Simulated assay, not measured.
Amino acid sequence: MLSRIGNSLFWMGRYIERAEHFARYTRVQYVSSVDAPLGQSREFVLESILDMTGSKEDYQNAHQQVEDNKVINFISVSEDNPFSLLSYIGRIRENARGARDNISIELWEAINRFYHKVNGSLSGELPAQEIEFFARRIEENSYITKGYIENTLLHNDVWMLISLGVHLERAIQVIRILQTKMNDIERLGEMKKESALENYQWTTTLESTEGFDMYMRCHRTSPTRKHVLDFLLFDTQFPKSVAYSMERVRECIQGIAFQQEETRKESIEFIAGKLACRFQYLTIEEVEERTESFLKKTLDNIYELAQKLDLKYLKSN
């Protein structure tokens, strides 16, 4: 397979997962803010959305104030934001087009419908009150697209490259969500920690990863910092956990025929295996007191792995 094709498949998977997580986080945080507890202003929620999506600096360069319609429009469809949800949908389609001869016609048609459904629902700017409909359309079409990936492709290098992109990006986005919510809780102040308001933050964290129902079945208690971190980081049976995603990343890298010249310790198989094992053999008690530094180090390691894949083996421009 040409590295150009591999690059398109890898980034198609990443953009599908990134758009889905950005859409869900924006929807959950904004919609839940309508009846949020006292002490959490709408501006607080909007800033959380900008932080998680990495759009805060670009937004501040384009707008002087944090306002509902401006933030939601900027995140979703604004031409001033090169990393809006709408731009990611376009990139999914362009990468699928670049690998058109390697994917099934069913998958291509699903992605093409995805693109046209999202663009067809727009008429200029997106008001804040329409974010739930817009985001759900992205989330639902993301699941449909991943269903076609899973069920219409041969489970060969093509499928593994897309799956590699999906699970690598999923681990990144779950960690970013955790970092953002921990920062939100810090911003609430010491008086509100370990309170109903903090539990509310952990509830929206689970909802932002579609993990609330499964969390309740596993833990049968209201969301707390320790239990939510344990569930989203280390539960090997939950598909959105970092442990689950990193194991899938390891499996995909082992299954793809990358031509490597490095020593064993420098190989991507070794790096991915170390990352996966870190989550297989750690417990929440071992990282609970240093969660922020653990998340940052893990995210840095994942980015390094992604960069090595992208530049050395997939030769992205």
Rank of each mutant, 00 (worst) to 15 (best):
13 G>Q: 03
13 G>D: 00
14 R>W: 00
14 R>T: 00
15 Y>C: 14
16 I>P: 02
16 I>G: 01
16 I>N: 03
18 R>F: 01
20 E>V: 01
21 H>T: 13
22 F>H: 12
23 A>M: 07
23 A>R: 08
24 R>G: 02
24 R>M: 07
25 Y>W: 12
25 Y>F: 15
25 Y>K: 06
25 Y>T: 14
26 T>V: 10
26 T>G: 02
26 T>I: 11
26 T>C: 04
27 R>Y: 08
27 R>T: 04
28 V>K: 06
28 V>P: 00
29 Q>R: 14
29 Q>I: 12
32 S>I: 05
32 S>P: 00
32 S>N: 11
33 S>Y: 02
33 S>H: 03
34 V>Q: 12
34 V>C: 10
35 D>R: 05
35 D>I: 11
38 L>I: 14
39 G>S: 03
41 S>W: 09
41 S>T: 12
41 S>Y: 08
41 S>K: 11
41 S>F: 10
42 R>C: 07
43 E>I: 15
44 F>G: 01
46 L>H: 01
47 E>M: 07
49 I>F: 01
50 L>P: 03
51 D>Q: 08
52 M>T: 04
52 M>D: 01
53 T>P: 01
55 S>A: 13
56 K>T: 04
58 D>L: 13
58 D>I: 07
59 Y>G: 04
59 Y>R: 06
61 N>G: 12
61 N>M: 09
61 N>Y: 11
62 A>F: 10
63 H>R: 11
64 Q>W: 01
66 V>S: 06
66 V>H: 05
